[in-house]
Design a protein around this nucleic acid. Structure first.
Length: 261
DNA sequence: AGTACCACCTGACGGC
DNA sequence: TGCCGTCAGGTGGTAC
């Protein structure tokens, strides 16, 4: 379930898991989870090495090994990581399994095969190639405003444009729009200053709160759209109908009375 | 530039 | 219970 908050939680889990221990081995259970033979070889070479650092930008994680080799982790729609002790049962859908000298294991999980681990030159090069814009929590209002004012399309599309601001996906864009009382199909450049500012504030608020709650929907406030984001859902604020439309090829849920166009 | 549609994969769920 | 259609928290390519 990986949007920015989820991936931030994964980053924390990974960082904790790799702490202090060298990698004993990296087992590739499904070749499709790994980009090309180059990546497979690079993973094999991790043996005996520690992990130097793990950083996140948007929905992407970058792992650095001491030799200077980098790996990009992407999670598609159903990817995740879990850190567990060697005695525990391995999580289902584990596609790559890292074992550490400490006894801990890190599982790279994919339910659908839409994500990948890839050996890369550097995050910089990868970010450039994939056109990944600044992280939604680091961009700052200046970037947000500049991009927003220049975007002539729908606001939900804008929030989800990874090349403008990275990290926001389908679920959290709906949440940000709901809390901002903005219709998902509203034109971005028509929001202007105050509207964009509100959108920005709610972007920060929603993402930060979600991270704080471990990106666990069950722990998120009931006043959020999130838990009512379904067929025949009711708006948690006004009790009105939650409707589903298509926006940017995705399902957008919104409250008909709170989010006017 | 922005959008619409398809493709990639496979699980989960609702309807019959 | 079982089969089937539909949808899905992402992205990349193509075509308009």
């Amino acid at each position: 379930m990986p949007e920015l908050p989820d991936v931030e939680v994964y980053r924390k889990k990974m960082s904790k898991c790799v702490k202090g221990g060298k990698i004993k081995k990296a087992e590739v259970r499904d070749e499709r989870a790994v980009k090309g033979p180059k990546t497979k070889k690079a993973l094999a070479k991790l043996k005996g090495k520690s992990v130097e650092k793990i950083i996140r930008r948007g929905k992407n994680l970058f792992l650095k090994s001491p030799g200077g080799g980098w790996f990009a982790f992407h999670f598609g729609m159903t990817g995740a990581v879990e850190c567990f002790s060697g005695k525990e049962k391995e999580p289902p859908y584990t596609k790559v399994l890292f074992s550490f000298e400490s006894g801990k294991k890190l599982s790279y999980i994919l339910k659908r095969m839409l994500g990948k681990i890839e050996a890369i030159e550097s995050p910089k090069e990868y970010i450039k190639k994939k056109k990944i814009g600044p992280d939604a929590l680091k961009a700052g209002y200046n970037v947000f405003e500049k991009e927003g004012e220049n975007y002539t399309g729908g606001v939900k599309n804008f929030l989800m444009s990874q090349d403008k601001i990275s990290g926001i996906g389908n679920i959290y864009s709906d949440e940000i729009l709901f809390q901002s009382k903005v219709h998902p199909a509203a034109k971005t450049d028509e929001l202007k200053g105050a509207g964009l500012k509100k959108l920005y504030r709610n972007t920060e608020k929603v993402l930060k709160e979600a991270i704080k709650k471990g990106a666990d929907p069950r722990k998120l406030p009931r006043t959020w759209l999130l838990t009512n984001r379904k067929k025949d859902g009711k708006c948690p604020k006004c009790g009105g109908a939650v409707k589903k439309i298509k926006a940017g090829g995705r399902s957008a849920y919104y409250c008909v009375s709170c989010q006017k166009k």
